[in-house]
């Protein structure tokens, strides 16, 4: 079916599709450099007649603490990934390579937890954090994501492919079990860990549901929350600055994606989950 269409036609279809997929990004960039007057012009033009990039972007950073939002985004995603890696790697090694009673049970729990959508624990977590007086803090955003069962599962699958002889050699060379995780498994797992890191970064940078519930203070907002807040307070009046803020919010992910496309796609293909 696909073959019979001429290559030119196939490219035409793909290009049209790509145009639709990229249109929102183009629109976002275009609006972010236009003055308010031009935004609602009946005829769309890609580039403005009168550039207001500076006005829009500086408005985005002054009307709301956008820089703060970005910083929060980096703090939160970094802490979450660090915690996820530190907890997932040792458990994945124990599940993949060590012989212990309880291994099958623990792995069963991991598989079970894998089935739970991330929104399901929200209410009890909220109650728990409320009782601890931790609502509306960084901890409230970070704590629920400190463990990634998906990460555990992914790393365990990867570790199973590491030859047993390598671990036996390490034991004979005198490494402890933690030493094996740190000096043998971690470097071997670097590609898988990078792929997982990309996914973790996407998910947690974009996460809206939980921060929306757990955080009210402006100074703790992550980028998606911040931009929703921005759109709320301006309610459709200042499209230019809003699009500038949207551009700034999406840029780190888009850049990371373009730089590490392979790792992203590999991670997504390995996962499929979530």
């Amino acid at each position: 079916m696909v073959d019979r269409l001429g290559p030119l036609f196939r490219h035409a279809v793909l290009l049209l599709g790509a145009a639709v997929m990229l249109a929102p990004f183009v629109l976002m960039l275009s609006l972010s450099v236009k003055p308010a007057a031009e935004i609602f012009a009946p005829q769309f033009r890609l580039l403005p007649e009168q550039w207001s990039a500076w006005e829009n972007y500086s408005a985005a950073f002054t009307k709301v603490p956008l820089a703060r939002f970005l910083m929060n985004g980096f703090i939160v995603t970094f802490c979450i990934f660090a915690a996820q890696a530190v907890t997932a790697l040792p458990m994945a090694y124990a599940l993949a390579k060590l012989r212990w009673r309880g291994r099958d049970t623990v792995f069963g729990l991991v598989l079970l937890a894998l089935l739970v959508p991330p929104q399901v624990p929200a209410i009890p977590l909220y109650i728990g954090l409320w009782q601890l007086g931790l609502l509306d803090t960084y901890a409230a955003i970070i704590l629920p994501s400190t463990v990634s069962v998906f990460g555990i599962f992914l790393m365990r699958q990867f570790f199973r492919t590491v030859p047993n002889d390598l671990i036996a050699a390490a034991r004979m060379d005198g490494l402890s079990e933690l030493g094996i995780v740190w000096r043998i498994m971690l470097p071997t797992a670097a590609p898988a860990l990078a792929a997982f890191g990309c996914l973790s970064f996407i998910w947690n940078w974009n996460e809206f549901f939980w921060p929306y519930i757990a955080v009210q203070s402006e100074h703790l907002m992550t980028p998606p929350l911040g931009i929703a807040f921005f759109s709320d307070t301006e309610s459709g009046t200042s499209w230019g600055p809003l699009m500038a803020a949207a551009t700034v919010t999406t840029a780190p992910l888009a850049l990371a994606f373009l730089l590490a496309q392979r790792a992203f796609v590999r991670g997504v293909t390995m996962s499929g989950v979530k």
């Binding site: 990004f25 629109l27 976002m28 699009m243 949207a246 992910l253 496309q261 997504v268």
Partner: peptide, 15 residues
């Protein structure tokens, strides 16, 4: 085609 997957849905929703 993959770029939307990696972008911030909330920002893109506003677009």
């Amino acid at each position: 085609y993959f770029l939307p997957v990696a972008s911030t849905l909330l920002a893109m929703a506003l677009v």
